[in-house]
Amino acid sequence: MTDKESLDRVDGPEKVAGTATYSAEYRFKNLAHAVLVTSTIAKGEITSMETRKAERAPGVLTVLTHLNAPEIPGNPKAVQPAGRAAVGTAFRLFHDRYIYFDGQPVALVVAETAEKAKYAASLIQVTYQTEKHATDFEANSRHAALPVNIQRSQNSPFKDYERGNPGAVVQAEVKIEATYTIPTQHHQPLEPHATIAVWEGDDKLTVYDKNQVSNLHRETSRRHLN
């Protein structure tokens, strides 16, 4: 297309004027503010949590942890095996004392204002029993295995493939052998995660959220809250 044919984004005027509404920017009366407390280890278990100071901090409405969080009604009823959940099990928030990843939410502080919630969150003390984690991709790649379903599938885009004549390199006059690596790239949009949840009656919850598939998100929320 030439410049003349190109289309302006329909959301352009609002975005450049600062009037486009992002997930944290919907306004309601009487909102409480929640701040997550996250794990400082990558693997292990929580041995104790000191939340009393946070609970008593000014403006705090509640502190949720795996010790007091209500069961999520829509979670499957099957009881997990004692101990750490098996690899591949869907992560359950505030479900058990185990740490599965660095930065895992371990407590949620709800308070009257964001400042008060953040301050109270800083008062929570957690002790962990740390286990050895394996997060170095290069160091662990020798343990890698191709998932079974990819090996089986004829059309998997993840299978090794060949084209041209790989044997030609043997006869090549000039050979360059080198290993190329790329640094880790993180998918981190600038807008932080933020969710506003508003009860509109006993059986209707409206969620304002930053996500990529809103209908899927709605269905998941509905299923979990039953």
Partner: peptide
């Protein structure tokens, strides 16, 4: 009234090594 909603800003634990008060 409070206007921002549940702003999920992760705050790492302040452990024994931290400046909790």
């Amino acid at each position: 009234v409070a206007m921002a909603g549940l702003s999920f800003l992760p705050v790492p634990f302040v452990t024994a090594a931290g400046g909790g008060d």
